[in-house]
Design a protein around this nucleic acid. Structure first.
Lengths: 110, 110
DNA sequence: CGATATAGTCTTCGTTGTAGACTATATAAA
DNA sequence: TTTATATAGTCTACAACGAAGACTATATCG
């Protein structure tokens, strides 16, 4: 369990999407949140693969809910971010801040 | 050339290190800058491999300088970041800002 | 009960992350 | 003037991550 590695770039996005969505975090909305916020396309398979790997690494926990009475109401798998992952996110965020600090000159539009 | 993909997590760090170091950017200092700022270990091989791939992708440009008259003064290969990479960095930075926005509650120390 | 919508899985493959061992080339020391 | 030591970079190999196509499951609607 929890092989404790560095988070990949896409893994970070997925984790942040889960945090953003809160209790409503499952595959489809996670994907939508990422596409909406980053403007970047992501296949469903990419999302689920990443979610599975994150869970294997102990970064997230999931539970399969009951099917809901809506059209196409297949059971949803909900996710939440574990403390290890939170710590990783914080730490990576700090690292990025430190790396970007002082580089404002390179941020201007060309 | 320049297959235009998403930058990996480590690739970003390397690019930022080059920006930070300016004209003094070559393998060894790049590594030191990353270790210093992020607190994360990185082997020399990891740095050079990433640099080579970034160059193949058109993200950086390198030139091999003349050997310097210091102990161990082997010729250094200097790097600079290309515009494509700058644009990628900006874009990824924006995406991360957007994803982190509103999640300050999760940033507090535990 | 066939069409359609939502949600998730399987399989596969290319790309990125990572390091150990090795090479090259300089000065310092013996 | 050979041998040690320091700096800088390369080769090779493999594990982990990124990404998608095709498929399965399960619900409602007409």
């Amino acid at each position: 369990m929890a092989t404790q590695k560095n988070l990949g770039e896409f893994e970070q996005l997925v984790l942040l999407a889960i945090l953003r969505l809160g209790p409503a975090s499952y595959g489809i909305p996670i994907r939508e949140e990422i596409e909406l916020r980053t403007g970047r396309r992501a296949s469903r398979a990419a999302i689920y693969t990443t979610l599975r790997r994150l869970e294997e690494a102990g970064m997230v926990t999931s539970r399969l809910a009951d099917p809901t009475p809506e059209r196409g109401g297949r059971a949803k798998r909900y996710f939440r971010v574990n403390d290890v992952a939170l710590e990783e996110l914080r730490s990576y965020r700090g690292a990025m801040f430190s790396m970007w600090d002082g580089l404002e000159q390179f941020l201007d539009r060309s």
